[in-house]
Write a protein that binds this DNA or RNA. Structure first.
Lengths: 133, 133
DNA sequence: ATAGCGTGCTTGGTATATCAAGCAGATTCT
DNA sequence: AGAATCTGCTTGATATACCAAGCACGCTAT
């Protein structure tokens, strides 16, 4: 069914593919970490309650401290998070895209935001189904 | 003394032992701007009242938004301010690395080849199903 | 079944960033 | 002399980041 979105922040930044919350949630699931596991790893710097709020877009701008902790735990770039959090408004620059994991990203597929979200959900479903070790 | 010789006031890397507030105040005075002038130039993004508090160290961590505004007005580096404000400048990637994360960064999701194939198929299915125009 | 644990989530409360409005002193008019 | 306009500063009020504690729903496994 076409469930568009049940909770939309409606924050008119530009055209973000994923919201900060969606992005963070998707990565946490990819890393197979629970909210409390992240809280743990952050040394209590990020509470599970707060992380939940962030992922559900109930927090507009988590502080760089928080973002930094998450970036380290997930091993992703802080700059990207800052950008998604709306801190730095960068001028449009070309993307170089030098991926390390050389698996073909979906970058060439020109995903619409909706498609991206849907794919993400499907990935989650997929992995849940398969009962990884 | 009329004019303290105009040395090179243009933002060294890191002045030794100035607090964020002292540092900001010294630079503002160097630029000969009043609190309200800064407020003005920032487009009201930074109120004179708030700037005063910052300069008197009554604010512990002004948000990056504020710091960014000030950095632009004073023409100093944002990173330096962030550092002085106590935001961690982790030993990460060097600066100057341009942004990536344009489209759905599935690159961060550690897809196995099988997962990638399956996702790809699902994407195709998705688009086949909807196919807008 | 029921006890236990792990999951995400909600919520009341606290701390703090941020500003509008005002205040007193110093200049500079007129 | 005031009047007008600066200056930096204080403060009460509001918004919101952030968390401790708890809740409800799964799961296994007795």
């Amino acid at each position: 069914m076409a469930t568009a979105d049940d909770k939309d922040v409606g924050e008119p930044t530009t055209e973000p593919n994923l919201t900060l919350g969606q992005y963070l949630a998707s990565i946490r699931k990819d890393r197979r970490l629970s909210l409390r596991a992240v809280e743990e790893r952050s040394g209590k710097q990020v509470s599970n309650a707060y992380l939940s709020q962030i992922e559900n877009n109930q927090i507009q701008q988590p502080s760089p401290n928080i973002l930094n902790a998450l970036a380290e735990i997930y091993e992703i770039s802080l700059e990207g998070l800052m950008e998604k959090a709306g801190f730095i408004q960068k001028s449009g620059l070309r993307e170089q895209n030098e991926r390390h994991g050389r698996i073909a990203t979906f970058a060439e597929h020109n995903l619409t935001p909706e498609e991206e979200v849907e794919l993400m959900q499907y990935l989650e479903f997929m992995r849940h189904r398969k009962r990884p070790r």
